[in-house]
């Protein structure tokens, strides 16, 4: 990063390559698979825009983790605002294992919420249910499911912002 701050493009390319791999692992544990690529690229752009704020006297890891955490919170906020889109009937699934182990940290964080909010988020955001399907599954009205997802994600982002280290 020090070389990159001085304008060394080759060193920067190698660094961003390693950072990209690390970010993919980081976000895969914290976000549903659909959001991972966007979060990685958003974070790479943030690293690029804010590279002047890195202090060479300090370790690089915590600086990167701080930016990634901020982008994680932004992604959760985006999730809270977006409507779930219905999936097509025949959807090819490439990698079951990756889908199953994804967003483990997010799943763990759901314990911080009320059971109804946690279930609505788990169904709609992690398991790919539509709001209508989640409404039938939980026995709640459609607007109640939407509200639970929205408020639950807002509560989660506040919790993450207040907690220094979430794992």
């Amino acid at each position: 990063m020090i070389a990159a701050q001085d304008g060394h493009g080759g060193a920067y390319r190698r660094l961003l390559g390693e950072v990209s791999d690390w970010l993919e692992r980081y976000f895969r544990r914290r976000l549903p698979a659909d959001f991972v690529d966007d979060a990685v690229q958003e974070t790479l752009l943030a690293v690029h825009r804010r590279r002047h704020t890195y202090d060479p006297a300090q370790p690089f890891g915590p600086w990167l983790a701080g930016i990634a955490r901020r982008k994680w919170i932004d992604a959760l906020r985006t999730m809270g605002r977006q409507q779930a889109e219905p999936l097509p009937e025949h959807l090819p699934v490439e990698d079951h294992r990756r889908t199953v182990v994804s967003a483990t940290v997010l799943s763990g964080l759901l314990e911080q919420l009320r059971p109804a909010q946690a279930k609505a988020i788990a169904l709609v955001r992690l398991q790919g249910y539509t709001f209508e399907e989640a409404s039938r599954e939980t026995g709640l009205s459609l607007s109640a499911v939407k509200m639970n997802v929205h408020r639950g994600l807002a509560k989660l982002t506040t919790f993450i912002e207040r907690t220094d280290d979430v794992e």
């Binding site: 990159a4 701050q5 001085d6 304008g7 060394h8 493009g9 080759g10 920067y12 390319r13 961003l16 390559g17 990209s20 690229q41 790479l44 752009l45 690029h48 590279r51 002047h52 890195y54 202090d55 060479p56």
Partner: peptide, 14 residues
């Protein structure tokens, strides 16, 4: 994206 970001990288003032 990485190729684009690292191409013609200007030095930054810390």
């Amino acid at each position: 994206l990485i190729d684009r970001l690292s191409a013609e990288l200007p030095p930054v003032r810390r």
